[in-house]
Design a protein around this nucleic acid. Structure first.
Lengths: 206, 206, 206, 206
DNA sequence: CATGAATGAGGGTTCATTCAT
DNA sequence: TATGAATGAACCCTCATTCAT
């Protein structure tokens, strides 16, 4: 009897894929629920029914409510990190910052709900519990610091680059908040030029 | 027994004052507890014992845990609003912005815990529930918009003043966050000059 | 105004007594429920309603279901231990053993349900988790060993006293089991003479 | 294709044998798991993986977790019963009791885990649910009663034989418990002589 | 028949709120 | 009015059982 040559391997692969699909579906459902109500108010049963599964099923894929939450954040960090890597081949440091800003805004535009997930742990009392997210914020800050250092003479030397990097971060942050308050309309990434322009040249008439 | 003619009125007044003192003491205790652990994790019993009263007593002054929380935020908005009014007599709009920034940073430095209280509701899912706070953020934004409009020619005209106001808000925000991550060391208001300098002239060498 | 002289002290005392009364009532309710259904099958809500309180109330007096269980066992050990102390003034070691046996049987007759509570942890897998109960069994065994040692020449010397003590323990145990299987009729302690007689002289005709 | 004339019958037989093999393997796995953790703590998945099958498979052979448990106990009763039958050809009733004791201790030494299985239901609340096991205990007791009755004049006549049988049962029981507490070392059956000696002649010096 | 993921009722525990003192 | 113990609804998680493959 002829057998599909790699049936066993395929089986495993299918199973693994099914697992990944489930995990992803649960993450996405949880993302919606966390986004709507916040971590603490979100009930496991809500996540389950949003995902269309029984509560018990969640625990076949995640060990706890917190695990789901962390998994979402980890995944979104990974996506953004991977996206930001695309900018590393850009030579000009200012253009690189610009592209990074665009990638970050684009990421949010494409994965809107993720932002609110991350914001939830920014509540200050959690900051210390959430080393991973804080480390990632630092990671991004360091990227900007590196860009600014490489820009050398083109940047003001009267402030440490940490200060300047923090400033660009603040401009991005407030752009995002405004966008969210406006209901996340299309076009977030088009603010890139404005951000960089204001960051570089300020608001005063020259 | 002879009674002072206005005893009834005075009595009421004393009673009311006593109520106010209690309410304030509870708010302050709650502020510390919310600041330490966040709204959801904070337990009513913790607040009560921090305030040195019984749990039942809290309910003689506030109708619920959420009521305490909202009361704190309202009070802190009122304090900051009153503080910002001090800047209104400044004629020069740019100096006025500068002073407002300083007042905001000073407010936080003096009432550190309040910031974390406000941040807790900045989680986006609460935005809709918390119209009051959103309105207050808008109120501050409008102040900056007004300042920028009055600055007229001294500001760039190629962006709407909303954009510029948002930018200064972002610079302030990121300064605050950095300060908080550093553990709220003294000296936050000394960042005012840097913020305004970067806001006005940008990060690029001229 | 005359005051009851020790009102404050009495208040505290009343409160403490009330706590003790509650704890005891809960323990007794739990004892009945554990006795009926066993530890694992017993539901917290059953214990609460048997005690006539809400589930939450249990947790004002005990930290967990297991805590209730252990508290019952500890209390019953203490009662039996206190009871056994009454036998210590008896000079004759054999009479002392006899009295101890009677006290143990009497204890069970008076606190019937406790026996099944203790038996539940005798399930072997729990033996190691339950050092306190095992230690107490050992404590009782040591008492008998001491008695036998003191009996000196009156006892057989061809077995270590541990063996003999174990034997008397077995006779007591099986008497108890038979009694329980018979539905705990009155008169358990009247088996004392039989137990001691068989222990001392055996079943063979002489 | 030629078929052996009785293929159908043999086939069924093979199938039945296969079923029996499966049931036995599951029972043995369950015995190990129950022995380790007790009935309530034992998880079906643990039993399944100990047996090397999927959880669903268990339900093709047993209708429930409890069914597995009862099946184990029934089987162990049958084994012990069959073993005890070997003693029935012994003429001398005292020697028969002795042999029976040895067989019981030997059974435990050889099937140690089974003992803990039985102990688990000795918790009194289960007694009523477990008529089978209680009946078996009675069965063994009756055997001893019969032996004692047959011993006639050689036994004391001042106690009913039920009392004496209970006594020997208690001595056996406590020997077993001591052995278990010691970690089930080899040599349990060597206590037979001691048990019978103490049972017959008591602990007092003669 | 074997599989093992899905199921969901049910458990222990928490804690905002109430209320008798 | 202050007290703080009692309350019980609601939550997260477990796991025996089922069933589609």
């Amino acid at each position: 009897m002829a057998r599909s040559p790699s049936s066993k391997r395929e089986r495993r692969s299918i199973r693994e894929e099914s697992r990944a699909v489930y995990r992803q579906a649960i993450r996405e459902a949880a993302m919606r629920v966390f986004g709507r109500t916040g971590y603490r108010e979100a009930k496991i049963t809500d996540i389950a029914s949003e995902a269309g599964v029984a509560t018990g099923t969640l625990y076949n894929y995640f060990s706890s409510k917190e695990d789901i939450f962390n998994s979402i954040r980890e995944e979104s960090r990974n996506i953004l990190r991977a996206s930001l890597e695309k900018s590393e081949c850009i030579r000009d440091p200012v253009e690189r910052m610009c592209e990074r800003t665009r990638l970050m805004l684009g990421f949010l535009e494409d994965h809107g709900a993720l932002f609110s997930i991350h914001m939830q742990t920014s509540s200050l009392h959690d900051m210390h519990k959430d080393d991973e997210d804080a480390a990632f914020r630092r990671e991004i800050l360091e990227m900007f610091i590196g860009d600014i250092d490489q820009a050398g003479e083109r940047m003001r030397q009267d402030y440490p680059s940490l200060i300047l990097a923090t400033a660009v971060g603040g401009l991005i942050q407030s752009t995002i908040l405004t966008w969210v308050e406006a209901g996340c309309p299309a076009g977030l990434r088009e603010n890139t030029q404005t951000i960089m322009d204001l960051f570089l040249h300020g608001a005063a008439k020259r």
